[in-house]
Amino acid sequence: MKRLTLILLVLALLCTAPARAGDLFPDVTLLGAMSDTQKEYLGVSTEGFKISDIKAEYVFVEVYSMYCPICQVDAPKLEDIHTKIGLTGGSDRIKFIGIGAGNTPFEIEFYRKKFSVAFPLFEDPDYIIHKALGEVGTPSFYLVKLKGGSMEILFFQEGEIKDTDGLFKILMDKTVQ
């Protein structure tokens, strides 16, 4: 009985510890409305799919909130990096997604329009994905290796993007073989 309690507590602690580089990214289900272009971008056919279903070698994940002032400041910087990755021919290799921690569909859509976010954003109104990630601060950024079914986190950053070019370089260095 005591052992069961201990195991459950340890599991709870493991579940809530923030994922870092070298850890595996949880294969969470992504929910939210998507355009046909966005479905095509991620190589999925339906709304409601797992991260591992994304057809790419790598996925770059931003955990953000419409209500987070730093995320608001970072939004144009992230769009710049996303555009530059596309210009260097990397958009087939690395896909970008955003997960709105605690954000409702209305809030996701407002943020997408406000900052002209081109990559898909997914809702997480009840913090289910956020909890699976160990309740990281917003914004947080993950580069996840998908090829070979790896799900390994190659890069993790919590907090503001202070060096846009530096982050772009990290993404290129870690994904170009």
Binding site: T5, L9, A12, T16
Partner: peptide
Amino acid sequence: MKQCIRFTAFMVCLLVAPALADN
């Protein structure tokens, strides 16, 4: 046994409480 499970559930709830502002 039930008490242990209740206690564990309570601890889990505490650990996964909604995120606070990050500042």
